[in-house]
Amino acid sequence: MTQPFLDAIGMTGGYGAANILHDCTIRVGTGEIAVIVGPNGAGKSTAMKAIFGMLRLKHGRIVLDGENISHLTPQARVAKGMGFVPQNRNVFPALTVQENLEMGAFLRRDDIAETMEQVFALFPILKDKRRQAAGELSGGQRQQVAVGRALMTKPKLLMLDEPTAGVSPIVMDELFDRIIEIARTGLSILMVEQNARQALEIADHGFVLVQGENRYTDTGRALLADPEVRKSFLGG
């Protein structure tokens, strides 16, 4: 990897006095899909939150497109081109699908119609349901609204915290297909996933975290092939 688009180097920190992350490094190249996997409590989501600025780091820095953004608030990072899809409560349930997308573009002052059409092209079902409240949709559709909302800011890096949590395997495959499609447009994607095997299959790079540290870092393909990784994290 030459100059990575996102370079989160040596992150150390946690919520209280105890550290959850220990010298953890995550990199994403332009237009790449990077996946963070690992057992429960490995600090996967915490690493994602640290990158997005929702967690104060004791050491380490976050560089986005060559610019050090370590001191910025999450909102300011959105303005810098980060889009974040939280794992839970990631839509406005009482707002319609279209209003959810509009709120995603709240910071933008230019015409958002084109971006909205792109989102509808990516997730056609959302166009049909655009006047329906997001809270009335199925889990998978809601997940599409959440990703669509994040895309409305025209991010350069899309961060997804367990996008397939609680959806059926068919919906999961569908979502992963869409994620590949998004990456093909030149967006960088960083994703935390429980479904490690499927996620690594679509990943350019994978980061296996254990207890807040980088255990294995390689291409998705290499990690899937690594007998050590397979045995410990992919169930053989």
């Binding site: 999450p74 909102q75 959105v78 303005a79 974040f84 939280p86 409560r89 990631n90 839509v91 406005f92 349930p93 009482a94 707002l95 709120m103 995603g104 709240f106 910071l107 909302r149 800011t153």
Partner: peptide, 11 residues
């Protein structure tokens, strides 16, 4: 509706 997500959206 969702205070956290509103903050993330820049509201």
């Amino acid at each position: 509706d969702n205070e956290e997500l509103a903050l993330l959206s820049g509201i």
